[in-house]
Amino acid sequence: MEEKRFQTEGDSSLVADSIRGNEKAFRELIERYQPMAFSVIRGVLGDREDAEDVLQNVFIKVYKGLRGFRGDAKFSTWVYRIARNEAVNAARKTVLSGPPADEVDLAAPERSRPDQQYRDKDQREYLERCLGELEENYRVVLELRYMGEMSYQEISDATELPIGTVKTYIHRAKLELKRVMTRRSLAGEHRPE
């Protein structure tokens, strides 16, 4: 499957067409920014079942706010802010209404060799849990990079962070992931040699 880089050319005409009720144009906008919005939501909420609902809510907010989008910011920045707000609100609601998702099973899955460390489903869940321990800002940028397949420049545009900061966050996130994984491995039966 080809990798689809998201492109920002033509955003403003798509916005204008969407405001005029052109469903095709709005569809195109959603498809362009869905990977970014989903990455932000994952970055804030982590591995949660309602991520897709939140994702839809983001684009409903986007649609309703289109007339208010003046174009003084990049469209990606604007969508990013909406996605981040929506995700933060969803996170807050859960905190108010119920206990947080499972925080059990701290140990790394057994019987894994270092090079096979993330191969199966258990390992994938293990990675999700380790990602959950990162600082939110690092995790969001990391998600934009890998889940959203965005370039440093695109991430910088959306988040309004300097490109150097974006790189630093990703760098630190990886180092931190290694630390978390090593600590968890030591807590469980298995340790990387």
Binding site: E23, I30, P35, F38, S39, Q56, F59, Q117, M147
Partner: peptide, 25 residues
């Protein structure tokens, strides 16, 4: 190296953009 691979593979967790668009519309 393994981390790079598994992080990249996580993009499979992303729902299809066309599906999101259809639902929202």
């Amino acid at each position: 190296a393994a981390l790079e691979t598994s992080l990249s593979e996580r993009r499979a967790l992303r729902p299809a953009a066309t599906r999101t668009a259809a639902r929202v519309i």
